[in-house]
Computed example of a mutant assay.
Amino acid sequence: MTPTGTTRKDTPRTSGTVLVIGGTGKTGRRTVARLRELGVETRSASRSGDVRFDWEDRATWQAALDGVEAVYIVPLDTSPSPTPAFVEQAVAAGVRRLVLLSARGVDVPGYFGSSYDDGGPHLEGETAVRSSGAAWTILRPGWFAQNFSEGVFLDGVRAGELALPTGDGRAAFVDADDIAAVAAAALTEDGHEGEVYELSGPRALGIDDVLDEIAKVTGARAAYVQLEESAFRAGLVAQGMPEEEAALWTAAMKPIRTSQEALVTDGVPRALGRPPRDIADFARDAAAEGVWD
C-alpha cells in the first residue's frame, strides 16, 4: 500500500525512454535491470555503458539525452558539481522527470567534516533539480551495505581484517537493491514528485555486527580493527591515494563513528510500501554470488 492507502499500479506511468547516468555503478546497474524487468525502454549511460557518457566531457551529454523522458542522475562527487549544467541541458532537451541520487546528511553542517560544510556537490545537485521546472525526486541514502561486497570494505573482509576509524559507531546500512527499487518507482510511477526520500536499512549495526552477519553465511569471520583517523589516513596515502582524497575518505567515516548513520528512516516504506531489506538478506545474497570466496 502507498502512504495514502491506495495500491500503486504495476504498469509504469513513464512511456518514454529512461536514461540512467552511472548505469554500470552500484545503484545504476540495479536500476537499469529493474526498469528493463518492468518493460521500460532504458538507456544505460557511463564511460563503459550502452551509451557513452562522461561527466567531464560535455560533448557526450546530448547524444545520451536525445529522446529521453526521464533521467536517473548518479552525480560526479566533485566541486563545483557539473550536475546543474547537466540538469539545464536535460530540461532543454525535453526531459520531464529527474531522480537524483544525493546523500544522507547533505543538509547537516559538518556531517562529512569541514570539507562539506556547504553541502558539497550533492547539495548543488539538489538545488538544481528542485529549480529545474521538471518533476523531481531526491534520494538520500546512507552508507551502502554493498560497500562490504563490492566497495571500499571488500578487500578487508576478504583478507580477514577490516581496519577502520569507525570506533563503536553504528549505521543503518541500506541495500543498494532498495535504492534501485525506489529510483525505478520514482522514474515510472505517479506520487513521487517533490519527495525527498531518506533511505536506510531497518536496523543500526556496528562494523562487528555486519561482520557477524557475513560470517553466518560464509563461515569465515573477518576481524574488526579500530584505527585512529590519523593512522587510517596515513595508510591510504601509503597505498598511493592523494592526501586530499585520503582526507575526504577519512572524513566520510565520521557519520558511522559518531552513529549519525544509525537513525532508521522511513524512505523505503514511504516509497515502496514495504520494509527495507535487512543486512542479513544482503549477506545471504552476496554470499550466494561468491563475492567473499
Rank of each mutant, 00 (worst) to 15 (best):
A271G: 12
T188M: 09
T11R: 07
I207C: 04
K9E: 03
G5V: 09
R96N: 02
A234N: 11
A85N: 13
D212P: 03
P202R: 05
A159F: 11
G133N: 04
G25P: 05
D175G: 13
G156L: 03
A280S: 09
D190L: 10
A246V: 01
L164G: 00
F232K: 03
V51C: 11
S102W: 13
T78C: 02
A215Q: 06
F53E: 09
A85L: 12
E193Y: 03
Y111F: 07
G235V: 05
L65S: 09
T265V: 06
A287D: 08
R8P: 10
R34A: 12
R52S: 13
G113K: 08
G219Q: 10
L272A: 11
E289N: 14
S115Q: 04
L65H: 06
A163F: 01
W136C: 01
D293I: 08
D54S: 14
A251F: 12
T166Y: 00
M1I: 11
D66E: 11
D54G: 09
D209G: 08
V18P: 00
E244G: 07
D155C: 06
S79N: 07
R233V: 10
T137F: 03
L248H: 00
L101D: 01
A252F: 14
V51T: 15
S114E: 14
T42M: 03
Q146W: 12
D117I: 00
A92Y: 05
Y116P: 00
G142M: 02
R34E: 12
I179A: 12
